[in-house]
Computed example of a mutant assay.
Amino acid sequence: MVNVILLVVCFGAGIFLQKTGRFPTATPAVLNGFIIHISLPALALLHIHRLHLDTSLLYTAAMAWCLFGAGVLFFRAIGRLAGLSRGTTGALMLVGGLGNTSFVGLPMIEAYYGKEFLGIGLIADQLGSFLVLSTLGIVVATVYSSGDLSPRLMARKILLFPPFQALVLAFLLIPVPFPDWLPLILQKLGDTLTPLALASVGFQLRLSHIRGELKPLSLGLLYKLVLGPALLTLLFVGLFGGSGTVMQVTLFEAAMAPMITAGIIAVDHDLNPPLVTLMLGIGIPLSFVTLPVWWWLLRGV
């Protein structure tokens, strides 16, 4: 409940600051820059160091990779059929193909399945959504913003992406005990992600853009909240025979709202920012309606 209230307050604060004109128009770029260079690396160092890897969670780690891969194929095909611009297609791949498996996902797991399953959410987020965004997500953002397919540029973009650098460092440091004060500092820095990201989204949100973005907005939310998790359910349960509570939580994470951080990366690469803010601004509240439905449907898995 606290996370929901925080979401509303920070989102509303962004809208308020935009309406009052007290902050410059470049505010979102500054906030996004802080998130990419400080907040995300801090979270990577903190959570990866705490991970306890288990082969039973392979489906959980693979979930975001499958969801994103299927989303790239889906939005590429739909983009061509619907005549969408490259920027719009790239934005849909990023924001429609990745779920909010941490800020929204963890509280929802606790509410519907209990605290004992929060570790599944962390695996889905850190080895899934976050790692996908730091690698394949950067590739998609680069290709659809610049059109450059040079392998050298792709490698450079990924290797110089601060959260990816932090991710690599975090894996290397897993065997090394952190001093007591370091996790506290990393947590404080990481805690800035949600308020800054939501304020940035709220600052850029223009509901007047809905009419012009209605078609891609509908397609993006349809895939993220309905088609994507349904496809993974057919794959993991119907084809591979997965079952049990861990599988339920994994698929529940697949049904989360669009990923805020993916939206930050999309906006940073100028991939249809109005559509991105609408996907987040409408998709997150809408997920509070669709998630109970998915919880009910997944009970039999």
Results as ranks from 00 to 15, higher is better:
M1P: 12
M1C: 01
V2H: 04
V4N: 11
V4S: 10
V9E: 01
C10H: 12
G14C: 06
Q18A: 15
R22C: 05
P24E: 09
T25A: 15
L31Y: 12
F34C: 12
I35F: 04
I35Q: 04
I36Q: 15
I38F: 14
L43H: 07
L46P: 01
H47M: 13
R50V: 04
H52D: 11
T55D: 11
S56F: 05
L57Y: 13
L58T: 12
T60S: 15
T60G: 02
L67V: 02
L67Q: 10
A70F: 06
G71H: 04
V72F: 05
R76I: 00
R76D: 13
A77V: 04
I78P: 03
G79S: 14
G79R: 01
R86A: 15
A91W: 04
M93T: 09
G96L: 03
V104E: 10
V104S: 14
L106K: 06
L106V: 14
I109W: 01
I109F: 01
A111Y: 07
G114S: 08
E116W: 00
F117A: 02
L118Y: 06
L118M: 13
L122H: 10
S134R: 06
G137P: 03
V139S: 07
V139Q: 07
V139R: 07
V139K: 06
A141H: 07
T142D: 11
Y144W: 12
G147D: 10
L149N: 10
P151W: 04
A155W: 06
R156L: 13
K157A: 15
K157C: 13
P163L: 08
V168W: 02
F171P: 01
F171Q: 04
L173W: 02
I174L: 08
P177A: 07
W181R: 01
W181D: 08
I185T: 13
L189N: 03
D191Y: 10
D191S: 14
A199M: 15
G202K: 11
F203H: 08
S208V: 04
I210D: 09
R211F: 12
L214K: 11
P216V: 06
G220T: 09
L222R: 02
G228D: 00
G228T: 00
L231W: 01
L232R: 03
T233I: 02
T233G: 14
L234K: 03
F236P: 04
G238T: 12
G238N: 12
F240A: 14
G244N: 11
T245C: 02
F252C: 05
F252T: 09
F252D: 13
A255D: 05
M256R: 01
M256L: 02
P258Q: 06
M259D: 05
T261R: 00
I264C: 11
I265A: 02
A266W: 02
A266S: 14
V267E: 14
V267S: 15
D270T: 01
L271K: 09
L275F: 02
T277L: 08
T277K: 07
G281I: 03
S287Q: 06
F288V: 12
T290Q: 11
P292V: 00
V293D: 09
R299K: 07
V301W: 01
